[in-house]
Nucleic acid binder design. Sequence first.
DNA 1: TCTGGGGTCCTAGGACCC
DNA 2: TCTGGGGTCCTAGGACCC
Length: 420
Amino acid sequence: MSVFALVDGNNFYASCERVFRPDLTDKPIVVLSNNDGCVVAASAEAKALGFQMFGPYFEIAGLCRKHGVTVFSSNYALYGDMSRRMMAILAQHAPSQEVYSIDECFLDLAGVSDTDALARRMREDVWRRIGIPVSVGIGPSKTLAKLANHVSKRVEGWDDGVFDWSWLSPAETDALMARLPVGKVWGVGRRLAAKLIDEHIDTALKLKRADPRWLQRNFSVTLERTAAELNGASCLSLEDAAQPRQQIISSRSFGEKTADLAVLTAAVSHHIARAGEKLREQGSAARLVGVSVRTSPFGDDPYHGYTVVPLVHPSDDTMALAGAALAGLRAVYRRGLRYQKAGVVLMELSPRERRQADLFAAAPDPRRQRLMRTLDSINQTYGHGCVKLASEALTPNWEMRQDVRSPRYTTQLSELLLIR
DNA sequence: TCTGGGGTCCTAGGACCC
DNA sequence: TCTGGGGTCCTAGGACCC
């Protein structure tokens, strides 16, 4: 019998900011996405004011000022570090853990006799050691654990931070599921929810009771599996070893639009270096390198240039990847447009060691492999971007806007919080 | 001034081939 | 009126997630 817990940090980014700004306890906080584009996190007080997640910030900037909302740019150095600490604490409480995103993880609780007590111990431990409030949902499948987590935060009467489906009888379970909109189910997004509602499946309970074959035929095997998971069948297992990605993307909007090929070159070089690092981290090599540049889709000249450059041999060498990426950039670049975003994608990934031997190819140069290893280890030790490609240029004037970023309290010596 | 994130996987449909 | 297939590869766009 499987038992999963889904633990996540409440309003994680906002909570991280608050750890270092106790004066903001009980105050509305909003955290923006990269480039100060959208709202990606809001404290409970800000949510109560009605801020929509993922809405463009400029539309609500006035409202924030009016209500005295404290606004932060994303500070991923801080959130990433707090995340590592939170995950390490949670890992101590269970035999295996799958880190699912920066602020949430699944834990395997099979065989735990008192899951409720364990859940409350975990909350207490994280809160005491790093000051982040977390919520815990428990159920016999990952989908039910996710849904339980939602209940533990948002369903009146059950919203004290821990919820376990095993507390309820089958009849009570169905009664509660009948109150949960189908869109709250993990894997059912906006579009799928709309289509399901058209078919009169508007609650989690109705999805649970839908005919599996009908779901498979009219929607997908994925949705059929989701419904099975709602019925308590565990179809998705805990993946405690990270699965290798099938594609790797690095892309970013510019702080200011640019028409300059040199700026795009610097940005694409930066992205390919980052993507190459991620590629080597998972031990893969790529055969295809995609390059994408685009102007604002909301402006007068919406343009999305995209091309794929094949490599003769799969590679994990940043220099080889960069050659392909910059060739691709020259192919999609159009003079005179003001670009808003550039990025690269690595595709057709294969395990590095299984790379096909080619009689006519030169053997991979061991010195280049050593160079890549050295590059990665320097950047991991001394900070990303410590050593970079010449084409990344020394002044990266394409960097994102971060007008209101907080200090990197936990990862930058000069930005430590000093108590006087 | 003028503003709209980033990443991963899936799939429908087109091109091409026999 | 209906009627001419099926497999593979590729990719743009869709859908989901946080």
